[in-house]
Structure formats: structure tokens, C-alpha cells
């Protein structure tokens, strides 16, 4: 899922300078699960903004609304009729879909969207996927070195791996130590001997913003005509 964390309140307050109507938009998908932007956090944000407005005489009219998934327009009709500023507690994707659908609203981010990851323990979320567009984890014991090695090294651990930890941050396990142990467990240490050659980064962000067309799902010319699309 997408991992995000709440922006510090002073930053949000600064973005709202001059606002009148404020809608705090929560999302029940990823940012709810990582406790950054679900219903509870949206309500908290509404309370905080209302209190600030009251104490500082800002005159904001603050409401909160939480949708199923802010990244799909099908779920965004409850926003219709709102004016002014939206504080998005959804990820950067959701915020942009909302902005695209309601151009006259001003969408500001209430969270910082960080990565594609998973919960590791109570309240701890760690990155797992770099979205490179060309998955190779069958070669690396199901552990992505691009996402989980600080240098994204593809051919083994750098000289800073010590005691299973990454030199960049002792809280982070060395991805390559994990890969080695994983391949040992799978009886596939032979894979450690094989060189992974320079990558083609075009399927990654380096190739520009990505657009995936699922031919089975995407309407063909006849359907587009029937739907009245170009």
C-alpha cells in the first residue's frame, strides 16, 4: 500500500492562510491503514483547524469528509458542491485526482506521501517496492534491492554492511544481508554468483510519467465511439 505521514500542523496552517471554507478530506484506503489520513485523522485535523480558527479569529468554516478511495473518481461525488480549500489526507494520487475532478477547488496536501510499503509492527511502516516497472525479486529472494538497499545495488552488499545493518541507518537491515540469508534458506545461493547487468530504466520513473494500458480492460475504438469518447 501507499505509506504517508501527517504533515506538521503549522505547515498545514500556513497553506490555509487566506482560506474561508475548508474541507478536510480523509481516505479509507492506504492512508487510513497507515494511520495518516483516514476518518479518525481527518476528524482530528478538522478539530485542530477549527480550534485554530477560533483562537486566531481566522473565520474558517471547517468540515470533514472521508471517502472510500480518493484515487478513483467514482468515489468522489460527495465532494460536489463544496467550495474553497480541500486539505487532502489522501495520498498524493488521491489529492491529484480530486484536484483534476474539481478544478475550482484548491487542494492542499495534509500528508506527505512517502512510499510503497507495508506495516512492520504497530505503527511502523517500511518501504518495500520502488515501482521500477521491471520486477526482479525472483533473483533476490523476494527482497527488492532497489527499494531496500540505500544505494539500490543489484550485485551484492557494499562495504558498509556490518552485523546485518545498513551503514546509512542502523535501524535499517542491510537488504543484501537479507537477500543472502533468503537465498540460503531457498537453497539458491547460486544466484549470488550471477551478475545482474545494467538495467533499462525506461519502465521506471526515468522514462517519464508512466501510463499503463490494460488491453483487456481498456475500451477499443468501437466501445469508445459508443461511449461518446474520442
Amino acid at each position: 500500500m501507499i505509506i504517508a505521514e501527517r504533515k506538521p500542523l503549522p505547515e498545514v496552517l500556513e497553506m490555509l492562510e487566506g482560506a474561508k471554507d475548508v474541507l478536510v478530506l480523509g481516505c479509507r484506503a492506504c492512508t487510513a491503514i497507515c494511520l495518516a489520513g483516514g476518518e479518525r485523522e481527518a476528524v482530528e485535523m478538522r478539530e485542530a483547524l477549527s480550534l485554530h480558527s477560533e483562537l486566531k479569529g481566522k473565520g474558517w468554516s471547517v468540515s470533514a469528509l472521508t471517502v472510500e478511495r480518493a484515487c478513483e473518481r467514482e468515489f468522489l461525488s460527495p465532494i460536489e458542491g463544496h467550495t474553497g480549500t480541500v486539505v487532502s489526507m489522501a495520498c498524493g494520487v488521491g489529492a491529484q485526482v480530486v484536484q483534476g475532478l474539481f478544478p475550482s477547488l484548491r487542494v492542499v496536501p495534509g500528508v506527505n506521501t512517502s512510499n510503497m510499503g507495508a506495516p512492520e509492527g504497530m505503527g511502523v511502516f517500511v518501504e518495500r517496492c520502488a515501482g521500477c516497472g521491471d520486477c526482479i525479486i525472483h533473483l533476490t529472494a523476494g527482497i527488492c534491492p532497489l527499494a531496500r538497499c540505500a544505494k539500490g545495488l543489484l550485485n551484492g552488499p557494499c562495504g558498509g554492511s556490518k552485523g546485518g545493518r545498513c551503514e546509512v541507518s542502523p535501524e535499517t537491515p542491510c537488504a543484501w544481508e537479507q537477500i543472502v540469508r533468503g537465498l540460503e534458506a531457498q537453497g539458491r545461493t547460486d544466484l549470488l554468483e550471477a551478475i545482474i547487468p545494467p538495467r533499462d530504466w525506461r519502465p521506471s520513473r526515468s522514462g517519464g510519467p508512466r501510463r499503463i494500458v490494460n488491453a483487456e480492460a481498456a475500451p477499443g475504438p468501437a466501445q469508445r465511439e459508443w461511449r461518446g469518447e474520442d
Binding site: G156, C158, K162, V180, E193
Partner: peptide, 16 residues
């Protein structure tokens, strides 16, 4: 780096 870990695979990396 013979002194980094995992020790037994340092030589594998050198071989690569």
C-alpha cells in the same frame, strides 16, 4: 572489503 558482512559472501562479490 574483507571486513564487511556477510563475510562468507565477500569473495563472491569479488568474483563478480
Amino acid at each position: 572489503n574483507p571486513f564487511a558482512d556477510p563475510f562468507e559472501h565477500r569473495v563472491t562479490r569479488l568474483a563478480k
